[in-house]
């Protein structure tokens, strides 16, 4: 398992499709990290973690650590991307060099360009873009530590960061990956399951309306397995959605009796 990460993508292509003999689920249905098949990894979500950004969020899905920051709505460049009727949402997903076991060369690659595109599209659906014509809403997702499911953790973080930035939006977007390991449908794949599993199905949706905003799949699933996976994914998205809301509520909770220290306002210091 040492050869992974940067090359993990290639390994995944080679091992997916069902011929995995590695036993990743015990006979009593327990996975390598001790979870049940329909159990999420521990999830931590924090809103408003960066000072400079207009909005930000930090998300952990198990060993994934992801930061998202939002800047905007701001002037859109390149200029030709401007839309006179609405804002555009430009997401940049990036993995940092030491987020994977083999060092990843800094800068965009084909995988991150694709992920950036589908996340931008998912977010564009929930933002009221028509409120901000000609502008760009820039979303930056940085994967600090990767352990399968980074696009889902990234999208989960990004929608919280958008809310933290005060950008009007229809709803938050939780996301999770479902997959197939040892012929069983399992929720929220971790690294070994992703590398040696049989299928991977990342899903993002708005639980309130049932609208699916991101869906990809690779590997092999029967129709029955797909239905089961979808059901698991929908349930998990609801749980993640509640955690997203809780994170925002914590960030903006107003404590009674909390005496705001009198700001020594800068302009008040101005003499003459």
């Amino acid at each position: 398992m040492q050869a992974s990460a940067g090359r993990g993508i290639r390994i995944k292509v080679m091992t997916m499709g069902g011929n995995s003999n590695m036993k990743l689920i015990s006979d009593d249905g327990i996975r390598v990290d001790g979870r049940k098949v329909d159990e999420l990894r521990p999830i931590r979500i924090e809103a408003g973690v960066l000072k400079r950004a207009d909005g930000s969020a930090y998300v952990e899905f198990g060993k994934n650590k992801v930061l998202a920051a939002v800047y905007g709505p701001r002037e859109c460049h390149p200029r030709h991307m401007q839309n006179p009727a609405k804002a555009i949402v430009q997401c940049k997903y990036n993995m940092i060099a030491f987020s994977v076991s083999d060092r990843k060369r800094p800068g965009p690659d084909r995988r991150s360009v694709e992920i950036s595109k589908i996340i931008s599209e998912a977010l564009e659906y929930v933002v009221f873009t028509e409120n901000f014509p000609r502008t760009s809403i820039d979303v930056y997702i940085e994967v600090l530590q990767a352990n399968a499911g980074t696009r889902c953790a990234g999208l989960t973080a990004a929608s919280v960061a958008l809310a933290d930035a005060g950008i009007p939006m229809k709803d938050l977007v939780p996301a999770v990956a479902v997959g197939k390991v040892n012929d069983q449908v399992v929720l929220d794949l971790q690294k070994e399951e992703d590398n040696f599993g049989q299928a991977d199905l990342p899903i993002a949706m708005i639980p309130r309306t049932g609208e699916v905003l991101l869906m990809q799949m690779d590997g092999h699933m029967t129709r029955a397995e797909f239905d089961r996976a979808l059901e698991m994914g929908v349930g998990a998205c609801k749980r993640i959605y509640d955690l997203q809301k809780e994170a925002l509520a914590r960030r903006y909770a107003v404590e009674k009796n909390e005496e705001e220290p009198a700001e020594e306002a800068a302009p008040a210091e101005q003499e003459g």
């Binding site: 400079r52 950004a53 920051a69 800047y71 990036n94 940092i96 965009p108």
Partner: peptide, 13 residues
Amino acid sequence: AELIPLASPNFES
């Protein structure tokens, strides 16, 4: 060193 655009409105990718 990477001055990633997450860190500041003036950093560009």
